[in-house]
Design a protein around this nucleic acid. Structure first.
Lengths: 304, 304
DNA sequence: TGACATTCATCGCTTGTCCCGATAAGTGGA
DNA sequence: TCCACTTATCGGGACAAGCGATGAATGTCA
């Protein structure tokens, strides 16, 4: 016979109320059942812990030693369950998200700030990463999920489409091109161009070239981070292209955007989650919130 | 559905071993049973705590939070059970005994010292009391049991006979009476007598007088404690009577004892226990030990 | 690429045990 | 000595726990 939680609860309640009948009522069991539980507990312990006559119930000396120990155990258990409930109900918890630097400082900052108002107990940790670092961080379990552009299929990672949006032209205020409501790439590429080092530029150049031999995506300046590119554009050093999710930063720099067509070049971004992991309730909530947030944005109208 | 200890144990073991099959073996249950236990626990908590595929088992983020809490609870429970076992096996525990002062410093000191060698973990606390304070201390629950002379029947207190022994004469060395092997009260009472104040003397006088008009128990000195009386007798200030259980003290004072007859006056001492209480294993052990110790003494041969 | 080995999940079935109601037994008070 | 009240015991019915068999998923090796 083994000690059970029910027996311990019975014992503590009995000790507190000093009566089998009352304690049984409090525990929502019958008095014979409680009697049996205490008896079982005493058998399991091998010692009598309650001195009882039909008139009086009191703890034996062993029972007096045992009571605080059990009371503490039950209290700790309740606390543990409450901790879990808090996590479940998003009163506490942590979400770790890896996202490219530009997204971290624009879209995600917006989302995090409104999510945090809704769930003040949840700690959202943004890991602003290089694009190529997002996937490893998800795979390594450093973060609950990541956000990244399209990737080759990965066995371990599930990808949920977050958005699919077209590149827009980014122009300083008063730039001649701002006179046009819409731009074509051909019109746009005639101006000094700031772009990013690496894949970003190469893939874009390839796509444009594939659409038309005439289109030559040839940046005059290349920097590492889009924030730098935007800053430079704001200073009148050139034009650049980016995705409309960076809206908040664009307006901060007082930059204008225009849709770019012929061709329309789109980028998909995905939420990346490890398939073998169930993410925490907080992470799940943020995940859902992010999807809903993005869904209600009208990126199409971003060309202001 | 409620959380059970078995579920928690299953969870902790599973977390430690990282495999349902292994953990099930360790817990001496089958794998499907363990599977069910974890499922129940997750249902009870309302959250998934283990991410599992057929190839890998690992804790979810919630599970990682829950693990230390449950591990601690189980550890505390084990400790509590061990504490009870220790008490049961007399590796720890406390005995509180109330006894008259003379008995505390003689018989009981001897018993306690040999009992303590046998059960070093048990703490025996002697409460050396006035004879009339023993019973109240037992009744009030201050002590596990008491030792006292015969009393009127008491509803709440059970009395176990500890011993029944005759008064002996206590003589300084070289006292003229030591020449006799045995004494009669008539011979004895002819010498300067030291006795105790109160009931002790009065009852004795009454008993002797009832046996023979000739016997007049008339102390020349009265003190409060037998230890004082013995000390005075040792100094040659008179003779006194006491019960042979004080053997160790008598030999310390180098006092001689002689049996006293015509009449033989006896005193019973009892172990006094509250009827409504089950005493602790340590107290029970000491109780038994004391009875056995006394039983093997040959008080009759005390007249050296 | 496919068969195999391994591991966890699911499903009936049996066994046991848990709890309840009824009732007995014990105790203090009138 | 009876009554009121409290705990202990007992028998039966319902429920659940655990087992074995089986299914499903996944990594491995030929």
């Amino acid at each position: 016979m083994n000690v059970t939680l029910r027996q311990l609860r019975a014992f503590v309640t009995l000790a507190k109320l000093g009566s089998f009948t009352e304690a049984a009522t409090a525990l929502h069991i019958t008095q014979p059942t409680l009697s049996g539980l205490i008896k079982e507990l005493e058998q399991a312990l091998g010692v009598q812990i309650v001195n009882r006559t039909t008139r009086k119930v009191e703890l034996s000396s062993v029972g007096k030693e045992f009571l605080p120990l059990t009371a503490r155990i039950l209290q700790d258990l309740d606390e543990a369950l409450r901790a879990i409930t808090d996590i479940k109900e998003l009163k506490s918890g942590t979400v770790r998200v890896a996202a490219p630097q530009l997204m971290a400082c624009t879209l995600l900052t917006d989302v995090v700030s409104s999510f945090s108002q809704l769930y003040p107990g949840v700690d959202v940790r943004l890991s602003d990463s290089l694009v190529e670092d997002v996937l490893p961080r998800v795979q390594g379990g450093e973060v609950d999920f990541g956000i990244g552009p399209e990737r080759t299929e990965n066995r371990d990672i599930a990808a949920h489409l977050l958005f699919d949006m077209p590149f827009v032209a980014v122009l300083p205020q008063q730039h001649p091109l701002t006179r046009h409501e819409h731009l074509t790439w051909a019109e746009f590429l005639g101006h000094p161009l700031i772009s990013l080092e690496g894949e970003y530029t190469q893939i874009l150049r390839r796509e444009l070239h594939a659409a038309s031999d005439q289109l030559n995506y040839a940046p005059t300046k290349e920097v590492s981070f889009m924030t730098t590119a935007l800053s430079m554009a704001s200073a009148g050093l050139g034009v650049t292209v980016c995705l409309p999710y960076a809206r908040s930063l664009l307006s901060l720099y007082q930059l204008q955007t225009r849709t770019l067509s012929e061709p329309t070049v789109r980028r998909k971004f995905h939420l990346l989650v490890r398939k073998d992991r169930v993410i925490s309730p907080a992470a799940q909530a943020f995940f859902d919130y992010l999807l809903a947030y993005v869904a209600q944005q009208k990126w199409g109208s971003m060309a202001q």
